[in-house]
Design a binder for these strands. Structure first.
Lengths: 216, 216
DNA sequence: CTGGCAAAGATTGGATACAAAAATACGTAT
DNA sequence: ATACGTATTTTTGTATCCAATCTTTGCCAG
């Protein structure tokens, strides 16, 4: 937060980014009401940019906005998670198919570096690194709208990951699937890579849904 | 819409809706700059709700918002259309798969009524009826986020349809494919219906891309 | 004549001010 | 004691105002 003498620019985006990371990290419980004035004080600004940021987050599905009734942090439920996973399972392979021909060795190395970090990092960084790895592979697909769609889904997904990140076998399995996916990408084998990616998203979804059921 | 004494409520949404239909209908040329003050006069309000509405439309991809530089109607280009079509081609079958078990005969009849209208309606209504037919089939899928995603893509798609709606063989082919799709839905044959839907979106995409190339 | 620079105008972003609606608290009547 | 109605308070939505940035126009130098 670089809120010192910033008298100009696009602060709504910055506020949205800060709130986004907070919501994803679970700093607000689902259903928490977000008061405009309170957020304005917190970011040393007026309510106006806050309102803009809430609209942004609403479209991303992180907050729910009711007219004259304020904003609430979007709830988390199994049905919503399944829906997000289904959408990821079709959108990400589409991006990967077009990304693979464009992937450079340097980009593959960067993706691998993220994997290395993920395997040693603390559990609370698992979600962010997971998202970073996926996007590193998909970024070169040259489809900006698709990418931002996937990025939004990744954010939503990450909220749920915090609920089961401590499941160690889930993390181990995810890492293994990531390694296999990366290998397929190195071979420039789009067919295999997309299949692995779909399977990875489905298996992660099923594992987390099972964890949610037991955690009930 | 022209209700002047409306001193309360959520006017930003209404302004956004009005602008949305205008942009989709092609009332503004792509790239047109949208001045806040001008829109405020037009809707008999201040710039504030206009700003909110522009944010909404930006998230939907209908306008592009540059900081300190105003809002422009999003441009139309072949690459963008192809990207949208690809996303529709994976998202809509996903929705249809889950909608088919929920589809009632009444809903199928309503979809057919839309088709009947589409075949006799004027060319400028083709896009709207096309969108209505697709959403009528997909609506019962019980996945609100997926549906709103598809609705947004349909709006973007509709902008392009105006460019080729007068291609009569395109319209005829689209109608025939819609009929076949509807028949598969009546049979509750999800496999066949999803295949037809994918093929329909791909063929429509290719036809329009070809029309764009010749129109060059 | 052309290119850059500067001042004036236009336009957006943000802050403050005001009005309406929701939420809350309180009091009264049953 | 509870339920309902009203007044108060809180919060959001809209309007107006100010500051900062972008644009445009005109001038001057090369």
């Amino acid at each position: 937060m670089t809120d010192k003498p910033s008298r100009t620019g696009a602060t709504a985006t910055q506020i949205a980014a800060a709130l986004r990371t907070d919501i994803i990290a679970g700093a607000f419980a689902p259903g928490t009401v977000l008061r405009q004035e309170e957020l304005a004080r917190r970011f040393h600004t007026s309510r106006m940019p806050v309102r803009d940021s809430l609209r942004i987050l609403e479209q991303e599905g992180l907050v729910i906005l009711a007219t004259n009734r304020g904003a609430r942090v979007a709830p988390l439920d199994a049905a919503g998670f399944r829906e997000i996973s289904e959408m990821r399972a079709v959108a990400e392979p589409l991006a990967l198919k077009h990304a693979i021909p464009e992937l450079t060795n340097r980009q593959l190395d960067q993706a691998e570096a993220i994997l290395d970090q993920a395997e040693t990092a603390a559990a609370d960084r698992f979600g962010a690194l997971n998202k970073a790895f996926h996007l590193a592979l998909l970024a070169p697909c040259q489809r900006p709208r698709l990418l931002s769609h996937i990025a939004g889904l990744s954010d939503l997904n990450e909220r749920y990951l915090h609920l089961a990140a401590r499941e160690l076998d889930y993390a181990a399995r995810s890492h293994a699937e990531h390694r296999a996916l990366l290998a397929a990408c190195r071979d420039r084998d789009a067919e295999r890579a997309c299949g692995l990616l779909t399977a990875h998203i489905v298996s992660a979804s099923e594992a987390l849904l099972a964890a949610l059921r037991t955690a009930d």
